[in-house]
Every structure is written in C-alpha cells, then in structure tokens.
Simulated scan of single mutants.
Amino acid sequence: MSVVDWPHHLLSLDDWAELPETPEFQVEVVEGVLLVSPRPLSFHQRAVTRLGYLVDQQLPAAFSALSEVEVVIDKMPLTVRVPDVMVAPAGLVETNPARFAANDVHLVIEVLSEGTRRTDRVMKFSEYSEVGIEHYWIVDLDDPVSMITYRLVEGEYENFGEHSGAAELDFEGTPITIDLNALTTPRAQRL
C-alpha cells in the first residue's frame, strides 16, 4: 500500500485488520495514527526470542507467553501495541486469536531498542498501567544487561526490583529465573 492509498482518517480496528503484513517494519497504531518503525536489530530479536521461551517454560500451566502479538489497548481512538513478550491465559492462547484485549494480558515485557526507549519507558508504561496490565518488565540490553520489574498497585506501577545477572522473579506466586546475560550471548540459557 502506498502513501497515496493510505486512509485519510484515524484508523479503526477494521482498518487495522485490513492492513497488509509488513515483515520489514514494526507497525502499531496509537490513537488511530499508524506508527511505523524499522524492525529491531539481531541482538534485540535474539533476546526477545530467548526471553519469550524462558518465561513460557517457567509459567504456571494456566498461562502462556507469546512474542510480538497484537494487544488492543483502546478501541476508540484505536491503540494497538505489539509488545516484545506478553503473557495471557493459556486457554485463551489456545483459541488462536488474531489479537488480545488488554484485560486478558497479565504481563508485558519490552526490550529497549534504539527507537523505542522513550516509548517503552513513558508511553507504554502509562498505557499499560491505565488498562490494568498487572506486571510490566523492561529489559535494557546495554552492558550490563538489566531488567526493571513493575507491578500495578492501586492503579499505578511500582518498582518491584532492578535486576542484573540471574534475575529471580515472581509471577503469580511462581518463581521465574532469567539469566539476563544469556539473552545476548551466542548460546542461550539452559533450563
């Protein structure tokens, strides 16, 4: 689709669903306006793949982790985010939806990249808390690799820990261990 063919109005969910796939770009919509950016580089993609797998393997059976799936934050005006990793009920994941409603998402993990630092730390931080996503974890791949974990308390995110090295985390009473350094090394963490 060229710019000339682009809708001349704020996007609706139907408009969003009709957009062509664009594997070379990362696409989200914020308050009806399309946000297009280049795909992150290889180290980011490696970290996201590993992170999604590691979290999924350690979750309680009632939950499942997925990477880069659509989450509808708001329908009017439309805001759809595509977090690096998100956790939702396993039963819902098994229905294979095209996208998830924010109220079905229990955890979102964003991995900072050159084009997303401010968005992940400010915009998504605010959006995810406003829609009630209970856990928000932000991973920074700059040396030393680190993670800040937030949890929703009375409608606001509170810092529940800053981690480097082997992060010992809790999700719904289940311990999750992530070797943050292994997110960027040539070989993945072994469970």
Results as ranks from 00 to 15, higher is better:
residue 88 A to F: 05
residue 186 P to C: 01
residue 52 G to D: 08
residue 175 P to Q: 06
residue 159 N to F: 06
residue 75 K to A: 00
residue 165 G to L: 04
residue 108 V to R: 00
residue 179 D to Y: 03
residue 71 V to W: 00
residue 70 E to Y: 08
residue 74 D to C: 08
residue 49 T to Q: 14
residue 63 F to V: 06
residue 113 S to V: 06
residue 106 H to I: 10
residue 15 D to K: 03
residue 95 T to E: 13
residue 122 V to L: 15
residue 60 P to G: 03
residue 83 P to T: 04
residue 39 R to G: 01
residue 185 T to C: 12
residue 57 Q to S: 15
residue 61 A to Q: 13
residue 156 E to M: 04
residue 8 H to C: 13
residue 169 L to G: 09
residue 6 W to K: 06
residue 110 E to R: 02
residue 190 R to C: 10
residue 153 V to E: 15
residue 51 L to K: 00
residue 152 L to K: 09
residue 125 F to Q: 04
residue 87 V to I: 05
residue 162 E to Y: 15
residue 178 I to N: 00
residue 186 P to G: 06
residue 133 I to C: 06
residue 2 S to H: 11
residue 145 V to M: 08
residue 141 L to Y: 10
residue 77 P to F: 04
residue 17 A to M: 14
residue 87 V to D: 03
residue 32 G to K: 04
residue 191 L to R: 12
residue 42 S to Q: 14
residue 13 L to K: 00
residue 60 P to W: 02
residue 56 D to K: 14
residue 164 S to T: 14
residue 4 V to W: 14
residue 107 L to A: 01
residue 161 G to S: 07
residue 68 E to P: 12
residue 163 H to S: 12
residue 102 A to C: 04
residue 77 P to M: 05
residue 39 R to P: 02
residue 118 R to L: 14
residue 115 G to F: 08
residue 8 H to P: 06
residue 123 M to C: 05
residue 124 K to T: 06
residue 1 M to K: 12
residue 156 E to G: 04
residue 65 A to N: 03
residue 105 V to H: 02
residue 57 Q to K: 15
residue 162 E to M: 15
residue 95 T to W: 10
residue 25 F to E: 15
residue 18 E to R: 15
residue 169 L to R: 08
residue 128 Y to Q: 04
residue 66 L to E: 13
residue 18 E to Q: 12
residue 112 L to K: 13
residue 40 P to Y: 03
residue 127 E to C: 01
residue 101 A to V: 10
residue 26 Q to N: 07
residue 109 I to M: 14
residue 20 P to H: 09
residue 70 E to L: 04
residue 41 L to Q: 09
residue 6 W to H: 07
residue 116 T to S: 12
residue 107 L to S: 00
residue 119 T to Y: 13
residue 89 P to M: 03
residue 27 V to S: 07
residue 146 S to P: 10
residue 105 V to M: 08
residue 190 R to Q: 14
residue 56 D to N: 15
residue 167 A to P: 03
residue 188 A to D: 15
residue 89 P to K: 06
residue 117 R to M: 10
residue 68 E to W: 09
residue 66 L to C: 06
residue 163 H to P: 10
residue 47 A to N: 01
residue 98 A to W: 04
residue 84 D to G: 13
residue 124 K to H: 06
residue 163 H to C: 13
residue 56 D to L: 08
residue 146 S to G: 09
residue 99 R to M: 13
residue 160 F to H: 08
residue 79 T to W: 05
residue 137 W to I: 06
residue 33 V to N: 05
residue 13 L to S: 02
residue 174 T to S: 04
residue 74 D to N: 11
residue 19 L to V: 01
residue 15 D to R: 05
residue 68 E to L: 05
residue 147 M to A: 11
residue 127 E to V: 02
residue 179 D to T: 02
residue 33 V to W: 00
residue 100 F to H: 12
residue 162 E to L: 15
residue 10 L to N: 14
residue 38 P to V: 02
residue 66 L to N: 07
residue 106 H to N: 12
residue 183 L to P: 09
residue 91 G to N: 10
residue 119 T to H: 14
residue 68 E to C: 12
residue 116 T to Y: 01
residue 165 G to K: 04
residue 188 A to I: 10
residue 51 L to F: 07
residue 136 Y to K: 03
residue 44 H to V: 05
residue 103 N to T: 11
residue 87 V to M: 02
residue 50 R to H: 12
residue 90 A to N: 11
